[in-house]
Simulated assay, not measured.
Amino acid sequence: MSGTVHLVELREGGSQDLYSVNNIMQEAFDPRFGEAWTSAQCLGMLSLPGVWLVVASVDGEDVGFALSRATVDEVELLLLATRPSARRRGVGGALLRAVIEEARGRNTVRVHLEVRSGNDAVQLYRREGFEKVGERRDYYRGRGGQLFDAHTYARDIADLT
C-alpha cells in the first residue's frame, strides 16, 4: 500500500478464509505478547452459533479481519488484526464499525473487547467510543514467559452513531 488513498472492501468471511486470517495474524501480532490464536482455535470458534468473521481487503489483497461473537444481548470482539502495511489507513476502523453495525443488526446492547495493556489499538477503540471497564492482571503470557495485563473495553450500542 502506498501513500495514496485506497478503498477498503469488507466481506463476510468463513472457514475458507483461515489461511488468510492466519497469515494476517502472524504479521499483526508480535509473538512476544502471546495474543495470536491458532488456526484450530479460529476454526473452532467459527463453528459456534453467533460467531462471524469480517475480512477487509485493499486492491484485492486481504489486509485485515475481525472475528466476533454474539451472546444473548451482547457482542464480544474476539480478534481484530490488520497487516502492519495497512495500519493507520482506515482498515481497523472500517472493521470495527462493521462489527458495531452487525451488533446493532442483531439487536444487542453492548460490544466488549479485550486488549493487551500498551497495545496501540487502544487509540482506535477509544476513537470509536469504547471506554475501559476492567483489567485482568498478568492475562497474556508471551513467548518468553513474561506476563502482560489485559484491559477490557466496552461501548453501548445505543450510544453509537
Rank of each mutant, 00 (worst) to 15 (best):
V54N: 00
V63Y: 02
A36Q: 14
G64N: 09
S57L: 04
S68R: 01
I100D: 05
V51Q: 02
D59N: 13
I100T: 12
L53C: 06
L43I: 05
L77I: 08
E74G: 06
E101P: 00
V99L: 13
A40R: 11
G64E: 05
G92A: 14
R87N: 08
L43M: 10
R32Y: 05
S68E: 01
G90C: 09
V72W: 09
Q41C: 09
D62A: 15
L77C: 08
A40C: 05
D59L: 09
E76C: 06
A66C: 13
A86I: 11
L48A: 15
L67R: 04
R87G: 05
V54D: 00
A56V: 09
A40L: 14
E35T: 04
A94M: 06
R83S: 10
D59A: 11
V63T: 09
V51G: 04
A56L: 06
V55S: 00
V91P: 03
V99D: 14
R89H: 14
P84Y: 07
V54Y: 00
R83A: 03
F65Q: 11
L67H: 05
G50A: 08
S47P: 01
R104V: 08
L46S: 04
Q41P: 07
Q41G: 12
R97C: 04
E74V: 06
A66D: 07
E102M: 05
G50T: 03
D73L: 10
A98Y: 02
C42V: 14
I100N: 05
E61D: 10
G44K: 05
R88D: 15
T71G: 02
E101Y: 04
V63M: 06
L96P: 04
A40T: 11
A94Q: 12
G60K: 03
P84G: 10
A81M: 14
S68Y: 01
V91N: 05
V91F: 04
V55I: 15
S85L: 09
A81C: 14
T82R: 00
S68W: 01
G50L: 07
A70Q: 11
G93C: 13
V51M: 06
R104H: 06
A70W: 03
V99F: 13
D62S: 15
L67Y: 02
R87M: 10
A98C: 09
V54P: 00
W52A: 06
A94L: 03
G105H: 14
A98T: 09
D62T: 02
E76F: 03
E102L: 02
A86N: 11
T82Y: 00
W52E: 08
V51F: 07
R89P: 04
G64D: 05
A86F: 15
V72G: 00
G64K: 10
S85I: 06
T38D: 08
A36W: 05
S57C: 07
D59H: 08
